[in-house]
Amino acid sequence: MIVLLGVAVVILGFALKQNPLLVVAVAGIVTGLLGGLSPLEVIAAFGDGFASSRSVTIFVITLPVIGLLERYGLQQQARNLIGKLTGLTTGRFLTLYLFIRQVTAALGLTNIGGPAQSVRPLVAPMAEGAAERRYGTLPERAREKVRSYSASADTVGVFFGEDIFIAIGSILLITGFVNTTYGTHLEPLSLALWAIPTAICAFVIHGYRMVSLDRWLARELDAAIAKRETAQ
């Protein structure tokens, strides 16, 4: 039971809004020591963990070109482009992106999107642009919400699309774990097929919420505009 103290450290640390880096470092040290590792072994675990997880930081390699394009107006152009497509509201655009992200992830193309490659340079400015066409400059609360929803469309899309592709990590983990532990043989293809019902539910639920964002924007911003006009 005592090893669960590390989990408690994490929950408490996040609840008290301490810096996540410190929370995780302390939780790791506590868990390692309670789990019977020597202090030197705990330090080695941090080194090993860092070295073997470098792939999650690989997106950094795209930042110089993204930064360069932003310098020359990529985000502005993304807004200009979406501004011309008058039928495309923020919610409809994000639903469309969610769909594209799910379908491409299901084909194994998980790297065509992501917070650095697509959300910051393209998706978020387009979602904002669609809202600005209708409401003018967005107040901070609305801007934060539109950006958060843009990030969520990317994440939900990739999570509930990738499992339909048979060679993805999670499917390989299932077959690898079950086949070695229980000496059975599972078909990756059947596992992938059973990811489809959830993928459809994810599209319906999250798509509905993206479209609801339009209604939220209308409520929030029409009221703000009306207030501004009566004040004048």
């Binding site: 090893v3 669960l4 939780a27 790791g28 789990g35």
Partner: peptide
């Protein structure tokens, strides 16, 4: 800023959790 390092720190925490038998 520091958020860059967080995903890799969490990967480490995950492996420590499993070594300790959480």
């Amino acid at each position: 800023g520091w958020a860059m390092l967080l995903p890799q720190m969490l990967a480490t925490l995950g492996s420590l959790f499993s070594t300790a038998g959480v």
